[in-house]
Amino acid sequence: MSDIVLETRDLRKAFGGLVVFDRLNFTLARGERHAIIGPNGAGKSTFVSLVTGLLQPTAGEIVFNGKVVNGQTPQERVKAGLVRTFQINTLFASLNPLESVALALLEREGRAKPSLAKVARESALLDEAEALLAKFGLAGELLTPTNMLAYGMQRLLEVVMAFAMRPQVLLLDEPAAGLSTHQGHELFAQLATLTAGTTVLFIEHDMNLVFRYAERVSVFAAGGMVMQDIPEKVRGDARVREVYLGA
């Protein structure tokens, strides 16, 4: 197969007695748009947390760009290009989008260390923050405190914050969670253009979106990954129908 950017080898995660998955061998090809589907509780979010280092695996290896990254902190993985968004908004409630994205860029460039220099000195980064927000359609909300933003805008900001880190692999945990079907479709159309060129792994429940935007699909179910294949094959698979599509 083509160049593999991310893979797991015999990955196992258990919370006490609850084995979320075992011997999970997952691959993500560079440049592809890949969906994870599966019922609630299948371990999709847990998988993303393991890959990004927010959780530690019980056993197995996580390989990014050919290197085992198990020992790396989440921050090291972010710097290396592995960035996620969260299923539940994980934002700076009292900061506005401009401040939030400015902070993201300052951290990306390692320019938030103790100093007495004004933020305003970072004109280039501040302009980049504004441009990025404008690109995602948030130009009108630069100064609205995040907790006052419409929910859909917050979901968008969630993606901008990750995208600002210039990820190699962007992991989107249910970016459309809580949005109406219409809003969800709008968001995905927007993401498809904006993230062109980035490897994207997304978790999504809406099958229309999955089959429209994913180039490959992984199906998770209680106990592990059922299959990983192109959408046409997944759609036609009996096991998938059984565990997820419910037919």
Binding site: V78, L95, L106, E107
Partner: peptide, 18 residues
Amino acid sequence: LALLGARENIPRMIMLGA
């Protein structure tokens, strides 16, 4: 600004590589 960020949301700061 980073102090405020960490006050508001630690997981987010981690995902910014902070």
